[in-house]
């Protein structure tokens, strides 16, 4: 964080400003957020896109002092799952976007290339998302990722979307939701009774990777504690070794990480494990590298194919096989999705 000579920060705290769509004013979540940040400067806006989609913004500059935008989502309450994400064999794979952007700042995060702004948009008309999901459930069963372009659990103390969706999913026999996170904030949902319609999915990374490339996220040990508690309480838990990064000494880092993970997590209690080698929409990657030269992992000589940038097929295969081999020491092959 930049500071002046006397050590005082030159930037405002996160959420020092809240942009509020005029039409979002009269919503309970708006009131909750305004109460949560009573000293925030309020700026009234017509449409969140006027602020969020402005040209000539600097994502990483805004990351130093993220602000909140409270808005109403008017359409696209559900998106079909992207090709980049694993669907775990579910035919009707969807995700939604309750919040756009994330409180963390991983170097490899595609949001930097996808969104023009680092400010966090919270859609306060959550009921409309739920209504649309119900409508879709009347047509067919659904597998729904609710923490897709964000980390919802990391934000749970600000808006309890996880709790709301877990309670909703509990009563929908045809719905399975996945809550993906790097947060150790399990205590925010620990009071809820586990539901078989919910999968809590934690991203697990070597501590060296966390320190260098997953800025602001909890340490591996803290994530493992949270995972351990969730398993103990009876939740379905998925571990995601995704993205696997090809850094110097990657094999020894990931091997140590897997060993550390299964020395504290009972493998037999896990729902499954997902492994994904780093890949990103090539346009997003190129947008990111135009803005920043301070992250070596983004400058790997990736191969581009069908609009996706990733390691070469040979490297990908080597990395997947390696991960499979180290994970199979602790887990049945059928449980591991690569």
């Amino acid at each position: 964080m930049p500071s002046n000579e006397s050590g005082k920060s030159l930037v405002n705290n996160h959420f020092s400003h809240i942009y509020i769509e005029n039409q979002a004013l009269d919503y309970a979540d708006t009131r909750r957020l305004l109460n949560r940040f009573p000293n925030a400067v309020r700026v009234f806006i017509r449409d969140y896109k006027d602020v969020f989609n402005r040209p000539h913004q600097r994502f990483q500059f805004q990351k130093r002092s993220m602000n909140l935008i409270l808005a109403l989502k008017k359409d696209n309450f559900l998106y079909s799952g992207s090709d980049q994400a694993p669907d775990f064999g579910h035919r009707h794979f969807y995700y939604n976007s309750l919040i756009m952007n994330c409180v963390y700042n991983c170097d490899y995060c595609y949001l930097q290339g996808m969104y023009p702004s680092a400010n966090v948009v919270v859609f306060v008309n959550n009921d409309d998302f739920i209504a649309e999901t119900k409508r879709q459930l009347a047509v067919h069963p659904m597998y729904l990722c609710i923490s897709y372009d964000t980390d919802l659990l990391a934000f749970e103390n600000v808006v309890p979307f996880c709790a709301r969706w877990i309670e909703f999913a509990r009563h929908q026999s045809d719905l399975k939701i996945e809550l993906r996170t790097k947060s150790s904030n399990y205590k925010a949902i620990a009071h809820l009774t586990p539901s078989c319609n919910v999968i809590l999915a934690w991203t697990v990374s070597p501590q060296e990777i966390i320190e260098k490339y997953e800025k602001e996220t909890p340490a591996l040990a803290r994530r493992l504690e949270a995972i351990g508690s969730a398993i103990e309480d009876g939740w379905n838990v998925r571990l995601c070794f995704d993205p696997v990064l090809r850094v110097d000494r990657w094999q020894s880092m990931y091997a140590a990480c897997v060993d550390q993970t299964f020395s504290s997590i009972p493998a037999d209690k896990l729902t499954d494990i997902s492994v994904g080698v780093f890949r990103m929409n090539a346009d997003y990657l190129s947008r990111i590298t135009k803005q920043r030269t301070n992250s070596d992992i983004l400058y790997y000589p990736f191969k581009k194919s069908n609009g996706t940038a990733s390691y070469s097929p040979k490297e990908r295969e080597e990395m997947s096989q390696f991960m499979l081999a180290i994970l199979e020491k602790y887990n049945a092959k059928e449980k591991i999705f690569v």
């Binding site: 005082k8 030159l10 930037v11 400067v41 017509r46 602020v51 913004q57 500059f61």
Partner: peptide, 10 residues
Amino acid sequence: RDYFPDPILR
């Protein structure tokens, strides 16, 4: 039209 200077500076 609205224009929004970034309120980052403390």
